[in-house]
């Protein structure tokens, strides 16, 4: 098991409409100690297709962690969150909300939809990078998650 974990690359799905943020996240995760593969979805529908392996994502892996922005084109982040948490196969995947909004109602609403945590994107570049790496480290090495059923 230990070996497998070291060898296996971690799949992270980043749902983010802003390519700049996506690029920054990629930048942050590149230097990460954990071997990871970052998948992008630029809107809610694309992310849903990826998760439910529809269309071109037929071969898509099941992600180990989802980083989700709230304000997305086509399908809203909140909607997608509700779909994930209502799906028996997907609901155990930790979903980290990563957004610019500091609005109280957004925080309450997403936790009500069973988001695993809510993080406001830091303004500062260093802070942002640190946050992304911390998320990865925390959810993938510190937190104990159920083993994926085959």
């Amino acid at each position: 098991m230990e070996n497998e974990k070291l060898v296996r690359s971690i799949d992270i799905l980043l749902v983010e409409d802003n390519p700049g943020d996506a690029r920054l996240a990629k930048e942050a995760l590149t230097d990460s100690k954990i071997k990871n593969k970052l998948h992008f979805a630029s809107d809610g529908e694309e992310a849903a297709d990826f998760l439910f392996r529809r269309g071109k994502f037929e071969e898509a892996p099941r992600p180990d962690l989802i980083l989700l922005d709230l304000n997305l084109p086509k399908k809203d982040g909140r909607e997608l969150l509700a779909e994930i948490k209502n799906d028996p196969h997907l609901k155990r995947i930790p979903v980290v909300i990563l957004t610019t909004s500091k609005a109280e109602e957004d925080i309450i609403k997403t936790y009500n939809l069973h988001a695993n945590c809510y993080i406001t994107k830091p303004l500062d570049l260093d802070q942002f990078m640190k946050v992304v790496r911390t998320i990865e480290e925390f959810w993938l090495t510190i937190v104990r998650l159920p083993t994926v059923e085959q």
Partner: peptide, 12 residues
């Protein structure tokens, strides 16, 4: 709070 922040964050 949201939409104006994004581009600024990008610039910075």
């Amino acid at each position: 709070s949201h939409d104006l922040q994004e581009p600024l964050r990008m610039i910075a």
